[in-house]
Design a protein around this nucleic acid. Structure first.
Lengths: 332, 332
DNA sequence: ATATACAGCTAAACCGATTCAGGTGAATAT
DNA sequence: ATATTCACCTGAATCGGTTTAGCTGTATAT
């Protein structure tokens, strides 16, 4: 079934059928009804591909995330997906698998599929090569980043990591904790820099010194948190009375280590995570953490992107900042 | 940049350029090199959309899962994604959000986008309407299901749920447990039926009776497991010494309830889950469970589907069954 | 009565690729 | 010298839509 068939059956031109399909004016009531009747009698669906070729838009966007099966990115996905389906866009899935090569490949695959725009949770780090993304932006290709990349003029959606970290650490101080450690994320992560900054600011504001032994790179997984926990709390030397962690997995790993060492949470040591993954609720010590509104970020990114796509030219790169709030549970 | 531009620049016809692009024979070495040089000098990428229209294939598939941010489906996604990118297909994301209406909508959106085929983790239940899927199949639309749907002749990828459950329950019996409960999944789930069947068989084989009080519908989430756990173990009456759970979340909910009731795991009660989500490893009582090879199923489904797409006609609906093995940890 | 406006419709160009039935000329066969 | 073969290349049709300029014929204005 093509538009020609419908035109023939209705004895009109395909231009008229097209007008009916797209609710364009200039078709008499009677004709419109007759054509519409035939269209749904034969259950005709216009070819999306042909339409795309003609109007130069595929009504689809690409989403390239860091890891497909990471609950945090998964929540971003859900937000993007929801916003897109609401606005009639479909989404292509891509993943950078944590490597720059793969990231660029995925982006290229999407661009090649001629998506109308792209949402990216960019990899970060000193050795980040900006050129490819910059080219894309120079070509006016609609692009929205979730998370910052320096020197790139596009739409960006973020949370105020530093402020959230500040709030969390202040809360610990307010509870009487004075020796507070930070279990840091990967050194290449800008999120980590920002969270550290909040930590630093909170301590500085209360005139508490930062002990170098208390700032440890634990990465972003369970194992890192556990390992650093065993080392710091199992080894010799002073022990902190609270730990602010880069993310929830690290916090859970740490708690696991603490329990193994028979150190009580929160009595002996308070722990705060970041992200509020589902797991926090299920854990036997429900984790105090910072709600990272991943789904909302996904939605915001999609809305921003689609706005960008549909505005075309005169569009100014926007920046959306969402709030991350502290969720108090029993680990503090 | 279109194929015409390249043709003009190389002073050949677009047919020749097309032949070069697609590595077709019948182009002289010299010409081929000249054209190729121009193609990559201008960094020309042929329009995927135009190509799709011409060859009637978009080199993309649709993946419709039940829930985007459910770790189990997320692992399926990863498998599908990996297999597809390996074979040069891109994947559209869709979600049924656990409702039949939304499932059909998502599928239609994909079909409308003219994907070459579809992978679906179908909703199940007595009131499942088969007609739409059946129509698709009748139209020879390539479709692979992850999980069974009755009366549908397509590719299917599954695990032997009953056998896996049988193995798990047998293991409990072998450890000396005799009063074994089953915390069941949603009544509409075929997986649940099969797992119950395995449970039943294991008990029957050892001439152990099934106590109706011990078979309880806990659904598929943490809350259900916790609630049924509190009821069964907190209330009056006999208590089982082991529980086989529909899935890991239910098992974790149950363990949470048991800990609240000061019942020791595994000393007083052994618990087995199903799926082996990441969480099992992180829990303070590492959960014995059944490894559900979700990623492998995703890969198998994608391979099956792509095979089906590329074979075209003479294709026989295949069925792939993967093994699920018991992973013994400290909850038993 | 003539000019003007307008609603309703269509023919044909266009989007950017693929494909196939020939055409051309050089090399080989008879 | 003519016929045959073959490698290489091209023109034009095709995929299935959208869009625009222009053509009707009827209604209104002058």
């Amino acid at each position: 079934m093509t538009i020609d068939d419908i035109a023939r059956l209705a004895s009109v031109s395909k231009a008229t059928v097209s007008a009916v399909l797209n609710d364009k004016p200039g078709v008499a009531r009677l004709t419109r009804d007759r054509v519409a009747a035939i269209i749904d009698r034969f259950n005709y669906q216009p070819s999306h591909v042909a339409r795309s070729l003609s109007v130069r838009s595929t009504k689809s966007i690409g989403l390239v995330i860091k890891e497909i099966d990471n609950p945090y990115y998964t929540r971003i996905m859900r937000g993007v997906f929801d916003a897109c389906s609401r606005r009639g866009y479909t989404v292509f899935l891509g993943s950078s698998e944590l490597t720059f090569v793969q990231e660029e490949k995925s982006i290229q695959a999407m661009v090649n599929q001629q998506v109308d725009g792209l949402i990216l949770t960019p990899l970060q780090g000193g050795n980040r090569d900006i050129t490819y993304l910059a080219t894309l932006i120079a070509r006016k290709f609609p692009l929205v980043l979730i998370g910052e990349v320096k020197n790139l003029q596009t739409g960006v959606v973020t949370i105020l990591n530093a402020d959230a970290a500040y709030e969390a650490v202040s809360y610990l101080i307010q509870q009487g904790r004075r020796d507070i450690a930070y279990f840091a994320g990967p050194a290449t992560s800008m999120h980590n820099d920002e969270r550290y900054e909040g930590y630093r600011r909170a301590l500085a504001e209360h005139e508490l010194a930062i002990s170098p032994r208390y700032v440890r790179e634990a990465g972003s997984y369970f194992e890192g948190g556990r390992k650093e926990g065993l080392e710091l709390f199992g080894g010799p030397g002073e022990k902190p009375t609270a730990v602010f962690c880069y993310n929830d997995l690290v916090a859970i790993g740490l708690i696991n280590a603490l329990q193994e060492l028979k150190i009580r949470v929160p009595e002996d040591v308070a722990v705060i995570g970041f992200d509020n993954i589902d797991f926090c609720r299920y854990a036997n010590v429900p984790l105090t953490t910072i709600e990272n509104p991943a789904a909302a970020m996904g939605e915001a990114a999609a809305d921003l992107l689609i706005g960008q796509i549909e505005q075309g030219d005169r569009f100014v790169p926007e920046r959306i900042t969402l709030n991350a709030r502290l969720i108090k549970r029993s680990s503090t």
